[in-house]
Design a protein around this nucleic acid. Sequence first.
RNA 1: GGCCAGUUGGUGAAGUGGCUGAACACACUGCCCUUUCACGGCAGCAUUCACGGGUUCAAAUCCCGUACUGGUCACCA
Length: 551
Amino acid sequence: MTNKDLANLIFPDIKQDISYYDEIYKPRELKEGQKVTRFAPSPTGFIHLGGFFQAIIDYMLAKNSDGIFYLRNEDTDQQREVQNASQLIIDTLRYYDIMPSEYEENGKIIGNYGPYVQSERKEIYHTFIKYLIEIGRAYPCFCTKEDLEQKRKQQEERKFRTGYYGIWSHCRKLSLEEQIERIKNGEEYVIRFKSLGNFERKFKYDDLVKGRLELPENDEDFVIMKSDNKLPTYHFAHVIDDYLMKTTHVVRGEEWLSSLPKHLELFKAFNFKAPKYVHTPLLVKKEGNSVRKISKRKDPEATMTYYKDKGYPKKAVIEALMTIINSNYEQWHTANPEKNFTDFQYSPKKMSSSGAFFDLEKLDNISRNVISKMKAEEVYQELYTWTKEYDLEFKELLEKYKEYSTQVFNIEREQKKPRKDYVNYSDIKNQVWYMYDELFEKENKKYDFQKITDKEEIKKICTIYMDKYFNENDDKDTWFNKIKELCDALGYASNMKEYKENPDRFKGNVADVSTVLRVVITTRSMTPDLYEIMKLLGKERIEKRISLFES
RNA sequence: GGCCAGUUGGUGAAGUGGCUGAACACACUGCCCUUUCACGGCAGCAUUCACGGGUUCAAAUCCCGUACUGGUCACCA
């Protein structure tokens, strides 16, 4: 009886040895410095903000070095797998325009290192596991859930470290004969890695984000192949795939740091060169006084669909994440406004190594800036696209009044200091609804008058203004001068300085009078430039609104 | 509990022994500009870098200890 017999018993169909795959997956022809990165999510639902954050880093690392970014679907956990999730992940990457150059979609493999779905790579993993068994570095374990549970209890009681290691690794000591016999008897088993490490021994490791680390060696005989579906665990699949797919840099969350010794020992057992690791800080959120990982279940903003639903421009979302990734990104971006974010040189070393808050307020601010820099036509297009999915009523209005809407969005826009009214696309309607009669008329109007609230006085101001002063063709200065004339005629101060010096001499000032007009026309006391609003609405509609108010 | 990591303002953070009397951005506050609101401009906002000790002429930066926070300890990734 030899290890080889055991290996053949477990994997009778595997004929090739591991060198076979070195023929298939040749080293990539990389120039000096080119990086190969990957995004490797498990398809358990919508893409998570933290995952997306890592995908951007992967993408940056690859683009910065003119390297390769690929996508691998880690679907070894069929229990938690969610239908369509893998498609959703691709859709999100496509939506944000950070597409990998190698991936698998609808069963179609794009790239030479596939398949890129782990469940399709079973035979590969089995070949490598078989090899490990042959060289005596892996063995079957027949411990049941109950056995393990009991072992853990004992360890806790006796204040030992929990885990399957050293004297606690029961099945490691089984004889070859017994192993073979129990398998032949049809007993359930997993395959465990046989660790040679010593927990008391530390080794130094340089992580690209965290810097120098001191970690204990792994001594656990962790599971590398599951019993039911014979798929590998993450630890094993990671090592094999990133070796075969020639990943140079592994970007993953820092929750993986503690299992790094396992991975490193596996790489060593195969005599593979390990990739470099970029362990990114977790995205956290404040809850009361404590801080916790941002969670899909509790936080709507943890799911990438949130940003699409709200209508944040893609650029804004990426920019917000980039400022967390490297805080000097903002300065770079203001200095190079026309450049694409991928031109920025990302540096893992400059990344904060502690948990980062994703600040929605900051996102709002970035988003305002992004939208304020767009041309009116672009706002129209983006908004229109958004409403198709989220606001059909508004979509119809946009269709009906395309030219007009573009002009509305252009109020105080294409100028040196554009307004920053719009936070995101879902917010625009709240800002411009009064520019559309359809929306204005059905609105339950609350007129927000400020200083002048007497209805008769308001009527008087409106009537006299329309009769004697309003002219559709006036330019802005003439328009304002006429408002001032109106003030003089009615006993309001047309000059603010004069008013401030002698407030008692006047009934009010030009601002108060403007506010009256503004509120009657829009119901709001705060709007963009009244002149432009009136010009767009036109005489007829202004009159209609005045009479609507009076009735 | 073991192991690992982190701790600079309300937030993201710059910072690797003297150029920091702690950048920059967001938020906040005040003033100015002004037909409102915004925008913009100006100013303010950490006498101090979790705490305690040490090294040094000099420490947020190096060392030790303490506290707190987070991660991990699955046939989940």
